[in-house]
């Protein structure tokens, strides 16, 4: 192909120079755009996590003297209260995720498929408004409702259902109710978005082909909503396992939440090595659950979480 080009030498040179200039400009633009991204990811995500990984693998053997060891991990294994807390956190988080899906799916379905055009927008907004209210305010609200001198207790006494003040805080059910409250919107929103894209004619076709209500739900609606369900479950699980305020405030002293252990190691006991170890354990554990969930449902991270 080079022969005909060389036959017109007067135009060959500027062609190449122009292309070169364009390529250089493109390269420069790419580098300029990559810089903030890499600074963010490397300085605030990658290096900090390598940092706690490093801390978790060293042991204090004297004042300002450390050596490499797995002592922190061994301590975690040898101390039942630690791994019990992690197991309890995990179990409760999975329970909360499942309950949130059960409670949230009908709501999402109602908003996406049953509500009229205008009430749909309003309901969706109603769903979102509590989303933006601080965790702290929500937990505080539950305290106002459920404590001994709270509104529920007062209502129960007033109606004669209870003889004296009732304390409803500081038990597992309350913690679960509070956690579901905190995360349910993260389940509803992605499911609404996926169901929104589903044509009602799919449901019609399902009935038309002789499917019953449950068959249509199981074989058509739920598979269609799967990416939204998986996205919702991942976010809900991560938020629950990583939550701090709700279990502490609603569960009180014996809430036994793993993030509380991390906080205690870091801030109360000033044992950064131990705290980092717990951090790594929580991270590995939650990632494992998320990875498993993605594998089982055949989805991937980019197209579930990012699609919100």
């Amino acid at each position: 192909m080079s022969a005909p080009v060389d036959a017109i030498p007067s135009v060959g040179a500027p062609v190449k120079a122009g292309a070169q200039r364009k390529r250089d400009a493109d390269r420069l633009a790419l580098i300029l755009l990559l810089t903030p991204f890499l600074l963010w990811i490397v300085l605030l995500i990658v290096l900090p996590h390598l940092g706690i990984g490093y801390l978790s693998l060293r042991e204090k053997v004297g004042p300002r003297v450390y050596e490499f060891s797995f002592a922190n991990y061994l301590e975690f294994l040898n101390e039942p209260i630690y791994w019990n807390t992690l197991l309890r956190t995990a179990w409760m988080s999975i329970l909360v995720t499942a309950l949130t899906l059960l409670i949230g799916f009908p709501i999402a379905y109602y908003i996406a498929k049953i509500a009229g055009r205008r009430s749909r927008a309003a309901l969706f907004l109603l769903c979102l408004v509590p989303l933006w209210v601080s965790d702290l305010v929500r937990a505080f609200g539950w305290i106002m409702l459920l404590r001994e001198t709270g509104i529920f207790s007062a209502v129960l006494q007033w109606s004669g259902l209870a003889a004296g003040p009732v304390e409803m805080l500081y038990n597992d059910v309350t913690v679960i109710v509070g956690l579901i409250y905190t995360v349910v919107l993260f389940m509803v929103v992605p499911i609404v978005s996926t169901l929104d894209g589903m044509d009602n004619s799919l449901i019609e076709a399902g009935y038309n082909l002789g499917g019953g209500r449950l068959t249509v739900l199981r074989r058509i609606v739920i598979p269609y909503a799967m990416p939204g369900i998986v996205a919702g479950c991942i976010i809900v699980f991560m938020l629950t396992a990583g939550s701090y305020l709700t279990p502490i405030l609603l569960g009180g002293k014996n809430s036994m939440w793993f993030t509380e252990q991390i906080y205690n190691q870091f801030i109360t006991r000033y044992n950064w090595e131990g705290g980092s170890t717990f951090g790594i354990l929580l991270l590995v554990f939650t990632s494992l659950v998320v990875w498993l969930g993605l594998r089982l449902s055949g989805q991937n991270l980019a197209n579930t979480v990012a699609k919100r």
């Binding site: 995500i45 940092g51 929580l282 991270l283």
Partner: peptide, 20 residues
């Protein structure tokens, strides 16, 4: 990598940045 920060528990983001 861009999406990952969204699924890291906030407490861990906090301690890791504190540590570094």
């Amino acid at each position: 990598m861009m999406i990952v920060p969204l699924v890291i528990p906030g407490v861990i983001l906090g301690i890791s940045i504190l540590v570094l």
